[in-house]
Amino acid sequence: MAIINNKTYDTLFLDRDGVINVERKNDYAKNISEFLFIDGTLDALSILSSKFSNIIIVTNQRGVGRGIMSESDLESVHNYMLQQIEEHSGKISGIYVCTDLYPISINRKPNIGMAFKALEKFPQIDFTKSIMVGNSRSDIDFGQKLGMYTILVGDKYPKSDAVFNNINAYFPNLYQFSLSL
């Protein structure tokens, strides 16, 4: 269990691109050679795995919907990612993906469909005892809609951006967050 401000959290939701791996500007990690872990992420996931009952990845992957990559390509990338995480003593409970193109899709963040898919498999999840870590507004909005503690990571936005008014915490990366617990 992770404790922040005297409150206990047992489930961690993570975005993928820009949180776990380097986000490819105007592109997608279409294969293993393009999937690069952000420095410290594998160590962070090892630390976080000891503190959370479940770590759930929720990721929009529009590249599949656009035909830039296949479901099989995405599965290969995720298998590689999971293998590397496990080799570094980390664990991921589930990966939920939305390949839909349109913002109206219930599963496309900031909409909350992927969270409820996770809840089907892990009915013990309490969203108010969960943390969402992401690098974009849609991740933060996703977490807020569910009553989660929200953490922004990365350098996508200047510090003057309004997104910083709507988060519970900011860290430069997942590793720095893991060290704070």
Rank of each mutant, 00 (worst) to 15 (best):
K145T: 08
R62I: 13
A118M: 05
Q124E: 14
I32E: 04
E86D: 06
I131K: 08
M148N: 07
M114V: 03
F177A: 09
S72R: 14
E34L: 02
V77D: 06
D141Y: 14
A115V: 01
N111V: 02
C98Q: 09
S70A: 03
S70F: 08
V64A: 04
S136G: 13
P158M: 05
K129Y: 02
G18A: 09
S72M: 11
L179I: 00
I55N: 05
L181I: 08
S105R: 11
Q124S: 11
S136I: 08
R16A: 02
Q83Y: 08
K7W: 02
I38E: 00
F127Y: 09
D100E: 13
D27W: 08
K7V: 11
K109S: 01
L45S: 08
F37T: 01
K51N: 09
N26F: 14
G147H: 05
G134H: 07
T59K: 06
I85L: 05
D161F: 09
I32M: 02
R24Q: 15
F177G: 10
S50E: 13
D43E: 15
V163K: 07
E87Y: 14
D27I: 05
D139E: 05
D10F: 13
I167C: 03
M114G: 04
T99V: 14
I57G: 02
K25N: 09
D17Q: 12
I106Y: 12
I85F: 03
D73F: 05
M81V: 04
M148I: 07
N173P: 12
K117Q: 13
D139V: 07
G134R: 05
N31G: 06
Y175P: 00
F116L: 00
L12R: 10
R24D: 00
I68V: 08
I32A: 02
N107T: 14
N79Y: 09
F122Q: 03
D126C: 14
P123T: 14
S160V: 11
F177Y: 11
R137A: 06
L14G: 03
S178R: 10
S93W: 06
N168G: 08
L152A: 04
A169M: 00
N21S: 11
H88V: 00
K156D: 00
R66W: 01
K7C: 04
V58Q: 00
V19Q: 04
I68H: 11
S160I: 14
I56T: 01
D100W: 01
I38Q: 02
Y170R: 13
G113N: 12
S49E: 06
S160E: 15
Q176M: 02
Y80H: 15
N31Y: 01
Y28S: 05
V163S: 01
S138V: 15
N168S: 08
L36A: 06
S33D: 15
E71N: 15
T8D: 13
